[in-house]
Design a protein around this nucleic acid. Sequence first.
DNA 1: ATGGTAGGTCTCCTA
Length: 262
Amino acid sequence: MSLKIATWNINSIRLRENLICKLMSEYAPDIICLQECKSTVEKIPTERFRALGYSSWVARGQKSYNGVAILSKLRIKDAGDLNFAGLDQARHVACKLENGVTIHNFYVPAGGDIPDRDRNSKFDQKLTYLTDMKDWFKRNTPQKCILVGDLNIAPQEDDVWSHNSLLNVVSHTPIEVRHLKDTQASGNWCDITRKHISTGKLYSWWSYRARDWNASDRGRRLDHVWATPDIAIKSHSSFVLREARGWDNPSDHAPVFANFEL
DNA sequence: ATGGTAGGTCTCCTA
């Protein structure tokens, strides 16, 4: 069976209901993982999603901040969530499909502005969150798993518009990259996006603050699709839907897609 | 070197 999955930091699921429906109608992923829903679970508008075939869904939410959801055309069997760094925030939800594949959807803390864990508690929480992820996947060896989400780190030089300019900017600092790599290694995760698009600049986020995000193109690849080796060998293509950043009233993130033939 | 925009909500926090 083929499996097409998309991950998208939506920056308010209620404000962007139309854009999600557009993605569903025009690109028809089997599974859409959303982050920054900024909504309690009860207020998520699921009716139109259901009408478009996404009748199985799970979410974790809170008022104003964070929030994650998995909207699926395939029946979801089981769901759960993990709470890392003692934050008690809606930053993770997981589900198991009937074909035995598990999907993890993460929204890693952004980490504030100052890249120093002693001076900035949000940066400390981000690194602790990644360490807790690493420890959890070390203790619970993932198999037949796909991990997606806004991990808020652009690890490679080609994942940012300027490696040198961003070395001291939260999202691309060496200590964050090291933490992300350690997390990746702990679960034996394969970076699916870079498996298929191995060289060249690739971004999934462009700041709202740019005068012209498309012309200046100062992007970062903050959104990721990973898979365990048993699933990774069955992946065959990936893409970032850059055009979605230019849709009306857009999120500052573009959806990232991966295709599998399981 | 600085400030730029966006969303949610309860007047400022977070990204």
